[in-house]
Amino acid sequence: MGVNLPGVGASAASGGILGPGSPAFLTTKIDFVVNWSRRSSLWPMPFGTACCAIEMMAAFATDYDLSRFGMERMSFSPRQADVLICAGRVPYKLAPVLRRIWDQMPQPKWCVSMGACASTGGVFDVYSMVQGIDTIVPVDVYVPGCPPRPEGLIYALMMIQEKIRQESLTKHFELRAEDPARAARPRASDTEVGALTGPFGNSTQQNQLTGGVEVEAARGSDDLIL
C-alpha cells in the first residue's frame, strides 16, 4: 500500500467514510459542529395563549412543516425545550407562569415573541396586559403581525438558526449569562419598562394621571412612569 498520510488513513480495502480511498476522519471547527447540531434540532416550547397559536399550529402542520428545519418535536415540557415561542397576549396574571417556564428551560435557550400582543401588548394597552414580554423574559426575535403568517414564524426560527450559526463557544457563556438571583424578577429596569410601555395612539389620553385618579400610592416610590 502507499503512504499512510494523516487523514488518508483508510485503505482501498477497508474504505473511508465517503467510500474506498477516502479519509477516515474529517477535521472541522468545534464551533461549527456544536452550532450545527444546535440549530438543526431546535425543540420549541409552545406558549400559545391566543390566536397567534393557531398560526403556530399551522406552521407545525404539514403544509408548512417546521420539521424540515429541525423543529422535530413540540416540547410541552420546558425542561426539554430550546426555543420558547410566546404566541399571544400575556396578562399580568400569567406573567409569573411565563417567567417560571423560561427559568425551567435549560441553557442554551432562545425566545421568539410571536405577534403584536406578545411583542408590545398590541391593542391591549390596558390594566391587565403585559406590554411586551421583553419586560419579563429576554427575547431574541420578534415577529410582527396580527397574527403573523406561518411564513413569518418560520422566518423567525430561521433567524434564530442564523443567530446560533454565528455564536462561538468562547463567547457563548457570556452571551447566555443569566443571574439566578434575578429569576422571577423583571427583566427590564423601571426606566426601560416605562419607555417600552409608554402610552401611544388613542391611549395617550388615558394614562395614569388623567381622570382625577389617585396616584399617590405609586408616587411614593420612584416608579411613576407617565
Binding site: 399580568y92 396574571k93 406573567a95 409569573p96 407562569v97 417567567r99 394597552d125 390596558v126 390594566y127 391587565s128 403585559v130 406590554q131 419586560t135 419579563i136 422571577a184 424578577r185 423583571p186 427590564a188 429596569s189 423601571d190 426606566t191 419598562v193 416605562g194 417600552l196 410601555t197 402610552p199 391611549s203 388615558q206 394614562n207 395614569q208 388623567t210 381622570g211 385618579v213 389617585e214 396616584v215 400610592a217 405609586a218 416610590s221 416608579d223 411613576l224 412612569i225
Partner: peptide, 27 residues
C-alpha cells in the same frame, strides 16, 4: 376594581410597578 368607570384604563400603578407586582405573585 377595573370595570368601574372611575378606574383608569391602564391601571393605577405604573407599568414598572405592575410588572414587579405580577412577577412577585406567590402562586
Amino acid at each position: 376594581h377595573p370595570l368601574r368607570k372611575d378606574f383608569p384604563l391602564r391601571g393605577r400603578f405604573s407599568r414598572a410597578e405592575q410588572t414587579r407586582r405580577a412577577l412577585a405573585q406567590d402562586l
